[in-house]
Design a protein around this nucleic acid. Structure first.
Lengths: 203, 203
DNA sequence: GCATTTACTGAACACTGTTCATTACATTTG
DNA sequence: CAAATGTAATGAACAGTGTTCAGTAAATGC
């Protein structure tokens, strides 16, 4: 039965076509301003068709988020090249901030905006697991050699992630203007903040 | 001319009536799900009337945010009672997390959601200035006595605020489930995270 | 070749933020 | 006091939204 396999393939291609268009438009105009009709127009299908492939607009967001988490993990892997656990952590922190600065709209989609209808939010747990696991592994590497002040690894991960997420998300929501006068200094200032923080948690 | 004064007073009362209803509904159902028609219904006026007092829905959000920043500053002032600068900073950090945990919807309105139409976001700078100034003052108190590792006060403020905002906002967006198994432990864990962090930045 | 399944359409529904001609009322003027 | 003016409020209308679903057209199975 080659036909059902081809149909399955075509279905996947169609789903990808939709998410690709959705991703593009979410990043250009933001999630809220992108309508199902706009997405349908851009791929030259009728609005109803999209609902044959995705339950609602939220599910489209979740799919885009899933891809974004993969992209984040790839950025992590590409950035962390050294062997020393502490250096690894430094590279990871800077890669996180870099990712948030270079892809503000994507970061927004991943961690800041909320899907309006669905309040469940269980999906994120699974979606972000790989990228988060990468952080945990590096932290474990540091803590095995007693290089950090943390006693509990989960509490350490919570702190590290909160710091970098705080830096990135406050910047994206323009809450840093009070502290950073010249906007073009932002990457430098955020990097220094990460560096200083990592210095302060060294054992 | 007592009439024009009465009219001005009535206008202010009307504006307050609208923002009070808006605040209530924003907190109950969220900004996105609250419609101008719903607000108008709840105060028994027609939708058009609201536009005689506020330019658009965003301006209603900004007004609610302004009030929320005042509320945050009051929470700060009530929480910070001790004299020692470091103790003050500890009280402030815990008050921030407490505020975010007890008023998640309000915190969302203040720091996380984005007004869809307006992208300006200049207002926040002025709106949050008082509450932020409070943090700066306490930090200055610490740094005058060389109690912290920070060399630059702005970089220190950036770090401290990013940490507490990171903790609160990741929690609100349900991104902490990976690290905190039992949800009822959240306040305890976040407080410990703040404590540990403040310990690590002590000189 | 015909019946059935599948993919797609686009009108329709109930909503949204916002505008504006019209109305009802309060105030000022003659 | 009555007429003219100014102001506050209305609610229908506009262009948009997410979502559904009866109807259609094409591909598949027999």
């Amino acid at each position: 039965m080659g036909i059902s396999e081809r149909k399955e393939r075509e279905r996947e291609e169609m789903k990808e076509m939709i998410t690709t268009a959705a991703m593009k438009m979410f990043l250009e105009d933001g999630y809220a301003k992108t309508s199902i009709r706009n997405i349908a127009d851009s791929i030259e299908y009728s609005p109803g068709t999209i609902y044959l492939y995705y339950k609602d607009k939220d599910e489209l967001l979740y799919e885009v988020q899933r891809q974004a988490y993969l992209k984040l993990l790839e950025a992590f892997k590409a950035a962390v090249t050294l062997q020393d656990p502490l250096e690894k952590l430094g590279q990871l922190g800077k890669a996180y901030v870099k990712f948030g600065l270079e892809n503000p709209e994507l970061y927004d989609l991943m961690f800041i905006i909320r899907a309006p209808t669905n309040v469940d939010e269980q999906l994120h747990v699974d979606n972000g697991l790989d990228a988060f696991g990468f952080l945990i592994e590096i932290l474990e590497g540091c803590m095995k050699e007693n290089l950090l002040v943390f006693k509990d690894i989960h509490l350490g991960a919570l702190q590290v992630w909160s710091m970098v997420h705080g830096l990135v998300s406050l910047n994206i929501r323009c809450r840093l203007k009070i502290m950073i006068e010249d906007e073009k200094d932002t990457p430098m200032v955020l990097n220094r903040a990460v560096e200083e923080y990592l210095n302060s948690i060294r054992a």
